[in-house]
Structure formats: structure tokens, C-alpha cells
């Protein structure tokens, strides 16, 4: 078994989660070849062949050209597997690559077994086990599913630099836009009480805010609540918001999507209030109160005095 790992730097930095791809390949016992999009300086230590698509020449976002070049590399390397992260880079490039190579694609892999690739579905309430029907398969791997491998200090790579095709893709990168600095640092709070879409409407957020105050904590929120304008963006928890690990995290009407869990699952103690006993938040929770949060919270507040 041979696999091509595709890694991608952002603003010149390789995300730490990229090291999880090495672990994934090791678990399968596959020979590894690396395609690296980034500056030479950010290349992870690697013992093997590396194709370098230097971002100083190619740019970091150039999916049409990246796809052409990587498809070419895959055709010459003839691996059985191409592995990318399930990130804004990976889910964008993987289908383009799979289509160019007539290969199956399996997205958001969280585990690999003899039967196939396991992927979450239906809000992570179930898992599908999928197998490719083609000799080549492109997978994107959910971050956190595999432990990050420690860097192979001192490893010597054979690097070949790839020149960009004369004609680029149809998409043109203009600029990065930085996130606005958050005015509340949820990371410092000892208790975070978050509101999810299950709170139903903007007026009900008050209940969650009062609970946060009663517990000496800060108000947090899931993304849909922020998108709807019920809570300011500063308070969003998750991959596209803040990462928190307080002594206690209380999730009110939050289902527990991976992107939310990524921002709070390291909390020391997790309490969830959800009317659905099977909600995936139950997987990380220490306590799950099965109830309608809108009805329950006034009663809890009364008890807290």
C-alpha cells in the first residue's frame, strides 16, 4: 500500500493537525509520499520523497493549478490512497482531485477499519462505513481523529520542486482577511455557559446569560446562535470561534457537532441540557440533563437563588 499525503500551509505556517496525516498513514502501514504546498521553510521533517509546490511561486490558494499538478504526481506515483485534511483546503481540493483522477472520495474520515473508512453522519448520531469501488481513493481526515505524530527530527527528505503550469485555475486569490480581535476572552473564564439553537429564539438567550451570571461564568454560544445575531460573534465557541477549556462548560440546546466540540471538549467538566437523549453532545458530557431547556432553566435559576 502506498499513499500520497497532501499538506498545506496557511500564511506560511503548517497547522499542527497536519501531523495527524502521518499517523493515519502509519496506521494503514502505507509507504508515504508527501506533496507540500507552502514555503520550503515550513516543510515538516520527512524521510522520503517530497514534491514541493512552493507557495512563494504558486500562492497558497490556487486550487485549479494545485489540482492539475497533484493529479499529475498521483498518476506517476500510482498510490492506492491520497490523504488530505478535512479542512477548508482539503474539502475544496479533494473533490477536484477525485474528479480529475476518476477516483472515489470519502470525506471526513474518523476511523479506519478492515471493513472500510468510518465517517460520521446525521449530526454524528450515526456512522457510515464506506469502501471505495475504485483502485484509487481520495480521503479527507477529520482533525483530532488521529493523534499528531511527533516530528521526525533529523529526517532527510528527497525534495523535488514542482513548477506551476503555464495556465492557472479559474479562481483568483485576492487577499487574506484577519479575524477581528475578540473583546471577550472566553479562554480565561472558569465557567462558560453556552446557548445553542435549541434555545429557540433570541429572547430565550437571557435565560442562559442569567445562568452564566449565577455560576460566575461567561456566556458562550454555538455558531447558528451567533449567525442569527442572538449573541455577538465574540462569544462563539468552536473551530471558527474561540477554543475554551474551563473548569465547567454548560451547553444548553447544543447538539454537539464536531466543529463545536473542537472548541470545548477539553473542558474539565461538561454539563449538557438537551431534549434529545441521543444528541452527540452526550458523548463528551459528564452530565446530560434530558429536558426542554427553555422550561428547565427558569426552575434551575430559582434553585440557584
Amino acid at each position: 500500500m502506498k499513499c500520497v499525503l497532501v499538506m498545506h500551509s496557511r500564511q506560511g505556517q503548517l497547522p499542527e493537525s497536519s501531523y495527524e496525516l502521518f499517523t493515519c498513514a502509519e496506521q494503514i502501514g502505507a509507504e508515504q509520499v508527501l506533496v507540500f504546498i507552502g514555503p520550503r521553510a515550513a516543510l515538516p521533517p520527512f524521510a522520503g520523497r517530497v514534491y514541493l509546490l512552493d507557495s512563494e511561486v504558486w500562492g497558497e490558494f490556487n486550487p485549479g493549478a494545485h489540482c492539475q499538478a497533484i493529479a499529475e504526481i498521483v498518476r506517476s506515483e500510482q498510490p492506492q490512497l491520497v490523504v488530505l485534511e478535512h479542512s477548508s483546503f482539503g474539502w475544496d481540493l479533494a473533490p477536484r482531485l477525485a474528479a480529475s483522477l476518476d477516483a472515489a472520495q470519502i470525506s471526513e474520515v474518523v476511523a479506519i477499519s478492515a471493513d472500510g473508512y468510518e465517517v460520521p453522519c446525521c449530526n454524528a448520531k450515526l456512522r457510515r462505513v464506506l469502501a471505495p469501488a475504485t483502485p484509487l481513493c481520495v480521503i479527507t481526515v477529520q482533525s483530532g481523529a488521529f493523534d499528531a505524530a511527533s516530528p521526525l527530527v533529523g529526517a532527510v527528505a528527497q525534495i523535488s520542486e514542482v513548477a506551476p503550469p503555464p495556465q492557472g485555475g479559474k479562481e483568483k486569490f485576492v487577499a487574506y482577511e484577519e479575524a477581528e480581535a475578540a473583546s471577550v476572552d472566553l479562554g480565561k473564564a472558569e465557567v462558560v455557559v453556552s446557548a445553542g439553537r435549541g434555545m429557540g429564539k433570541a429572547e430565550n438567550i437571557e435565560l442562559v446569560a442569567r445562568l452564566a451570571a449565577a455560576l460566575g461564568g461567561e456566556l458562550g454560544a454555538s455558531r447558528p446562535v451567533v449567525d442569527a445575531g442572538w449573541v455577538e460573534h465574540d462569544r462563539q465557541v468552536g473551530t471558527t470561534g474561540q477554543c475554551v477549556s474551563p473548569a465547567m462548560y454548560v451547553a444548553c440546546g447544543i447538539s454537539g457537532a464536531v466543529q463545536h466540540l473542537a472548541g470545548m471538549k477539553k473542558s474539565a467538566f461538561i454539563v449538557a441540557i438537551n431534549k434529545d437523549k441521543d444528541a452527540p453532545i452526550g458523548e463528551v458530557a459528564d452530565v446530560l440533563a434530558v429536558a426542554d431547556a427553555v422550561q428547565l432553566l427558569p426552575q434551575v435559576l430559582e434553585q440557584l437563588g
Binding site: A98, P120, C121, K277, D286, L288, V290, E302
Partner: peptide
């Protein structure tokens, strides 16, 4: 291009303490 082998519940670590019942009771325990 892809075959579904199975649909299964995710592995349950199942360590959460589940509080269920009437709202009064749940509120008090919580």
C-alpha cells in the same frame, strides 16, 4: 464510486450521568 458497507451507531463511551424525569426533579438534581 463508493460502497456503503454499514451504518452503525458511533462507539459509545457512555460515561455521562443521565438525568431524566419530571422537570422539577431534573432541575433540582442539576
Amino acid at each position: 464510486l463508493v460502497r456503503t458497507v454499514a451504518l452503525t451507531p458511533p462507539p459509545r463511551k457512555g460515561s455521562a450521568l443521565i438525568i431524566e424525569g419530571g422537570n422539577d426533579e431534573v432541575a433540582a438534581q442539576l
